[in-house]
Amino acid sequence: MTLNPIVSVEWLSQNLDIPNLVILDASPKKNVSNLEPKYIDIQIKDARIFDMETVFFDKENKLPNMMSSPEVFSKECQNLGINSDSIIVVYDNLGIYTSPRARWMFKAMGHQYVTVLDGGLTAWKDAGFACEKKNNKTFEKGTFESHYNSELVSDSKFILNNLQNEDVLILDARSEARFLGTNPEPRLGMAAGHIPNSVSFPYSSVLENGKMKSKSELENLLLNLKCKHKKMVFTCGSGVTACIILLAFELVNDNEKALYDGSWSEWGQVGKFPVEVG
């Protein structure tokens, strides 16, 4: 089947009987954007908890929110009862916030049948669809196997080697104030500013009331970027909100795209890499 990168709550409500459907709740326990969920302690009926922070992120890495190894990712997906042919719908309780990161993780691990629920838990609950108290169920072991695609991931070496490459466009999803260096970073000990020659593109610019803007609105946002044929690399504070704009651009162009997983948590370490301010 063909699966769009993002689906509506109406689509999900009409497709709950898909035999291999898996609904994942990727709601964060906290966030540096100071967003407050409208609904807490509930989940979409029959959803499974996709705990990025304590299960799926690499706990051995000193950098926050880094992708786990393919072996760990496979094991934890199997523990959730996810199979290699599962059709996955992922959501969070902040509209669209952490769910695009969860989707990207699956894509980077070679799983194509994964989509984000537009508006997340808020849109689902407000539409009157079935929810239940949040719970951690156990599942029959799944058959999921990771097939890591390194082309979807960029590291600091790639960024450093391509700072002057006109065929690479680096987009920063942090707020403009953080990008310019006029606001301090929420993480202690981090430099202020941005990667040289990167472009500010706050994740909030592609959202409206917790949902993704329309395709025509997203296309208008692209007009001034002059990104034709360029490889697009997405960055933010720690690799989460960058996936929101990555998802947005996936809806409107077919450029090669990758996430800088270390993002500012790595690049912004004082004295480690070149930084621009203003």
Rank of each mutant, 00 (worst) to 15 (best):
D118F: 00
V114W: 02
H194W: 08
L35P: 10
R48D: 08
V240Y: 02
M1F: 14
V7L: 13
G142E: 08
Y148C: 09
L94M: 04
L180T: 13
N79I: 09
L121N: 00
V72G: 02
V114G: 08
K141H: 11
V22Y: 06
G95H: 05
D17T: 13
K230W: 11
R187P: 07
F50P: 06
E217H: 03
H111G: 05
K211F: 14
I244Q: 10
F273E: 03
V252D: 08
D155L: 08
I6F: 09
S150H: 00
K137W: 06
M109K: 03
C77Q: 08
K213C: 09
L225S: 08
A248F: 00
A102K: 02
N4F: 14
E60M: 12
N20V: 15
K272G: 07
L207K: 09
G110C: 05
P37R: 11
V72N: 09
E151L: 12
N65F: 00
E53D: 14
E219V: 06
D254P: 12
L225P: 03
K45F: 12
N93E: 01
F56A: 06
K141Y: 10
C236P: 05
M1W: 12
N83R: 11
N162P: 06
N220R: 07
H194G: 08
S13P: 08
E266F: 03
K133C: 14
A191N: 04
S68V: 13
I42M: 12
K257L: 10
K211S: 14
H111C: 07
N183G: 12
N15P: 08
N253I: 15
F139M: 11
G268M: 01
L225M: 12
Y203G: 05
Y260L: 00
N197S: 08
K226R: 00
D17E: 15
L246K: 11
V32C: 13
I18V: 11
L251V: 03
V233F: 07
Q164A: 14
T235M: 07
S150P: 02
